[in-house]
Simulated scan of single mutants.
Amino acid sequence: MPRNIKQILTWLLFGFIIYAIITSPDRAADIVQATWDIIAEGFRNIGRFFSSLME
């Protein structure tokens, strides 16, 4: 992907995030919390997987 397109898409994503936070901060916080929960659960599951391999 050319650098200019990547930079434009990055700025558009950043702008959308700012817009979402300004227009609906509670919903934006819920989305961030849900995303964090998914990531944390994924790491816990990876840890459980490797722990099961060691048993």
Rank of each mutant, 00 (worst) to 15 (best):
L13S: 11
A29W: 12
F49A: 06
A29Y: 11
N45S: 07
A29K: 13
P25V: 10
L13F: 03
S51W: 08
F16I: 04
I8E: 10
W11F: 02
D26H: 04
W11V: 10
I21F: 09
S52M: 08
I31Q: 03
I17Y: 10
I8V: 15
W36R: 05
E55V: 12
I18K: 09
Q7G: 01
R48V: 02
D37P: 00
V32K: 04
E55K: 13
W11C: 14
L53P: 03
G42F: 12
G47V: 09
S51T: 15
I17K: 12
F49Q: 10
M54D: 12
D26M: 13
L9Q: 14
Y19N: 07
I22A: 05
E55P: 03
Q7D: 12
D30L: 09
A34C: 01
L13V: 12
G42N: 11
Q7R: 12
T23M: 05
R3M: 06
S52D: 13
I5K: 12
F43Q: 13
D26G: 09
I17E: 14
A20G: 03
W36H: 07
R3P: 01
I22P: 01
I21S: 03
I17N: 09
S24C: 06
I46Y: 10
D26A: 12
V32L: 13
S24M: 10
I46T: 11
S52E: 13
I46E: 05
I17Q: 09
N45Q: 13
M54S: 15
